[in-house]
Write a protein that binds this DNA or RNA. Structure first.
Length: 804
RNA sequence: GCCGGAGUGGCGGAACAGGUAGACGCACGGGACUUAAAAUCCCGCGGUGGCAACACCAUAUCGGUUCGAUUCCGAUCUCCGGCACCA
């Protein structure tokens, strides 16, 4: 057998066909085998095609999948398309085609590109979130949420992106800018579908503890949920029956409350503010409304607001304190109103200074003096606080609340930073929300048998940009009879956000063609939860939070059997361009996967993606670096070139390196250190390439270890060695610690921690023997000179250090 | 501002229950093969000094703990990511 050229195009195709024909990656529920569910975050198929960053995660998941297959697991490894979404819709409008057509083209291109890598996906389970057969179940979940009161309509100011012409969720806004297009966000008061994710805030927080996720992601979710313990305190408004409830985390500072502030949207304002105050208030509200969120953020240093003419009564002293309005108080957090304690809260301090309000300190530091140019926000001892004087502030928090509770003026509570999820989008290319609005019956949900509610047929359309959904103008579709009373009624014209379909897709993969249920009980029992989930960190508080919310809801509904969807999560780092910047069309530094595949073949690209650097860190693409991997694969190929194999056992050296490599590669795959696994394989290959006659066993072991990384070349060489069946049917090689042990080892000899000599000694040398050898060394003698040795430090097998 | 993470050769990066710093690869230099080139193979490759053996310096900076620190502790600087009036 002699092969002197390496035709990767032929080989890639040959083995991809082989795997497909033999259904190597198709899975069935098999209770006799342990399952392992490995999931990639499915891609959004954009018109640009695959990015060179996508295959990094996919290659890693593929390596782990093949590894677990060889370890004897029943591995589920599916792929599909997150196919609804704005960019495709905008692209379709531009091209004057239907988004469905654009989506289909994009998917076909993505699938073609992904398939070129030879990933071990079970393509028989492919799903597409924009397929009515799929989104029927997205709508089904929505109706369940609605029935439980977790989906509701609310009219509130929300984030609106004029560029994308739609409302957004909080999670989609970064520093006042649209997460997708980068444009400035406006606030618009709109009727919106909301999902009550806040009802799950505590569980979403607590259950993070049971997950093997990067700490960074967990921290981001914790912070996003933002649990704060504190108290609700009631202040009555003078000359009315009305009470204002405030939330505070510092009830110990209650006695320092010298005024109150209401959010501009606070409902009490329109009822009680009168006369000139009312005129000024309306003017202020108008000013705020014209400001974008971004402007409000930028101007945050300068506080604005005004006095309402109203006074509140302090719940302890009964003193009158003025009530102000300011946009530094947010209607969407807590109760939309605060007690202002300028001495102990910097924001209140800034406001008090600007409006010349009294600043009354009630907490003093233990040692230092109180600052007078800023608020003192730390703990201390209460003073100026009547009956509470002398109490440490930590204790005061409890005692003040207890006192208030006994008078019926307050109670301890918990607030979350998390807001309910703005769930409707004023766009066409999304799941229709399956409800009907009737004048007499109100909101009427569709019945389950009427699902899926499909999008209307149109050739193409223009987006109105008024903030109204494009569906609203399609009268034939919108106007229906109320299912309850039969009177004329209208369909809901908003659609669901892109996140809806991705909230539960992992669940559909396990039973994707089921017509009667979201997935069969049997399949749910066997396959859930996802054991390993791989994708980018950018979804930390978007997809990953939303999906956990839906999963917990489905758990409560008895649909799924686990409290969490994704047990283990690993994030891949971004692949940057050679110049260290993000790859982008405008910079002209994008590496096209098709081009590198044409030039090097799947195995080289796969290995290079893994070799670039640690999986979870950013890495730079290098057109020279990939050449090194190309040489490596060629070198592997040439090991099988011409030389005769020996059927004898590998020699001792080879055996030792072989077993070290088995250990290293096995450990590194487990720990996601794919770069060092490849490095270990390189060392092994370098060793083998120096030998005249190579043992067949040593070569076979190499192929087994390399197979998850470079499956096409390996299958070809494995086949050439006379094995008719795929290497995936082989067990993963076993590591023997005895064979990996060195006979002789090099030991560094130090004097006072400085390296002076290296000795090669038997690995199992005794301490006394070692000391003798060390003292015999001329170099050591010359360094020691007249000095005696005060202390020996001997770390077996590692080093000798003498303190002189 | 607050919360994370990271600073190691010309470059990507190894090594951290504290124990030979720079594995592996790229680039570069020298050599072999070749009419020549490519490919391949061999040798060298942190810095300074030295013909050399070798010595000294070196893991962002400054300190500390230790026989011994890239690894642990404290302070500082820089970069990246997240949050951003959340009461």
């Amino acid at each position: 057998m002699k092969k002197d050229y390496f035709n990767f195009k032929e080989i890639d195709q040959k083995w991809q066909n082989y795997w497909e024909e033999h259904k190597i990656f198709q899975r069935n529920t098999d209770n006799s085998k342990k399952k392992y569910y490995i999931l990639d975050m499915f891609p959004y198929p954009s018109a640009e095609g695959l990015h060179v960053g996508h295959p990094e995660g996919y290659t890693a998941s593929d390596i782990v999948s093949r590894f677990y297959m060889m370890k004897g697991y029943n591995v589920l490894h599916p792929m599909g398309w997150d196919a609804f979404g704005l960019p495709t819709e905008n692209y379709a409008i531009k091209m004057k085609i239907h988004p469905r057509e654009a989506t289909k083209n994009n998917i076909d291109n993505f699938r073609r590109q992904i398939k070129r890598f030879g990933f071990s996906y079970d393509w028989s389970r492919e799903i597409n979130t924009s397929d009515p057969f799929y989104y029927r179940w997205t709508q089904w979940i929505f109706l369940k949420l609605y029935r439980k009161g977790l989906a509701y309509v609310d009219e509130a100011p929300i984030n609106f992106c004029p560029e994308c012409k739609t409302g957004l969720a909080n999670e989609e806004v970064t520093s006042g800018k649209c997460e997708r297009c980068g444009g400035a966000i406006e606030r618009r008061k709109m009727k919106q579908w909301m999902l009550r994710i806040t009802a799950y805030a505590d569980r979403l927080l607590e259950d993070l503890d049971m997950l093997d996720w990067p700490e960074k992601i967990k921290a981001m979710q914790k912070h996003w949920i933002g649990r704060s313990e504190g108290a609700d305190i009631q202040f009555s408004i003078k000359n009315t029956e009305e009470k204002i409830t405030v939330f505070t985390t510092r009830p110990d500072t209650l006695m320092g409350a010298t005024y109150m502030v209401l959010a501009p949207e606070h409902p009490l304002l329109s009822t009680y503010v009168e006369g000139d105050f009312r005129v000024a208030l309306d003017k202020y509200l108008h000013e705020i409304a014209s400001k974008s969120d971004l402007e409000r953020t930028e101007l945050s240093k300068e506080k604005t607001g005004l006095y309402t003419g109203l006074k509140a009564l302090h719940p302890v002293t009964g003193n009158e304190i003025p009530i102000y309005v300011s946009d530094y108080v947010l209607m969407s957090y807590g109760t939309g109103s605060i007690m202002a304690v300028p001495a102990h809260d910097q924001r209140d301090f800034d406001f008090a200074q600007k409006f010349d309000l009294p600043i009354l300190p009630v907490i003093k530091p233990l040692n230092n003096a109180l600052p007078n140019d800023r608020a003192y926000e730390e703990e201390g001892v209460m003073f100026n606080s009547g009956i509470f004087d002398g109490m440490p502030s930590e204790e005061g928090k409890k005692v003040v609340v207890e006192w208030l509770e006994s008078k019926g003026k307050g109670k301890s509570t918990i607030q979350y930073r998390l807001r309910d999820w703005v769930f409707s989008r004023q766009r066409f290319w999304g799941e229709p929300i399956p409800v009907i609005h009737c004048k007499t019956c109100g909101i009427v949900p569709l019945s389950e048998k009427d699902l899926p509610l499909t999008l209307p047929e149109v050739d193409y359309y223009e987006s109105s940009g008024t903030g109204e959904s494009p569906l609203a103008v399609l009268k034939d579709w919108v106007n229906v009879q109320c299912p309850k009373c039969g009177e004329p009624a209208q369909r809901e014209t908003n659609t669901m956000p892109q996140w809806a379909g991705s909230c539960w897709y992992y669940l559909r993969y396990i039973d994707p063609r089921n017509k009667d249920a979201i997935a069969s009980k049997e399949n749910i029992e066997y396959w859930l939860p996802v054991d390993l989930y791989i994708g980018g960190a950018e979804h930390a508080v978007l997809h990953l939070l939303y999906a956990r919310f839906w999963h917990k809801f489905l758990y409560d509904e008895g649909v799924v059997n686990t409290p969490e969807p994704f047990l283990k999560l690993r994030n891949q780092g971004m692949v940057l361009a050679e110049d260290g910047r993000k790859m982008s069309k405008s910079l002209g530094n994008v590496i096209n996967p098709d081009e590198v595949l044409d030039k090097y073949g799947a195995d080289v690209v796969r290995c290079y993606e893994m070799f670039m650097g640690p999986f979870d860190q950013e890495s730079l693409w290098s057109t020279q670096g990939i050449e090194g991997i190309n040489r490596f694969i060629k070198k592997v190929w040439s090991l099988f070139d011409s030389k005769e194999y020996s059927s004898a056992e590998p020699n001792k050296d080879t055996l030792r390196i072989m077993h070290k490599t088995i250990r290293k590669v096995t450990e590194d795959i487990t720990h996601f250190s794919f770069n060092t696994a490849i490095s270990a394989l390189m060392i092994y290959v370098n060793h083998l390439s120096k030998m005249e006659r190579r043992s067949k066993e040593a070569l076979e072991t190499l192929l087994l270890l390399l197979s998850p990384f470079a499956p096409h070349v390996v299958e070809e060489l494995w086949n050439d060695l006379g094995h008719p069946k795929s290497i995936l049917c082989q067990p993963w090689p076993a590591f023997d610690p005895h064979l990996a042990k060195d006979d002789m080892i090099e030991i560094p000899i130090q004097i006072n921690g400085k390296l002076r000599e290296r000795l090669i000694v038997p690995a199992d040398i005794g301490e006394e023997e070692l000391k003798t050898l060390v003292l015999q060394s001329e170099k050591i003698q010359s360094f020691l000179g007249e000095q005696g040795i005060k202390k020996w430090i001997i770390v077996p097998r590692r080093l000798v250090n003498m303190v002189a």
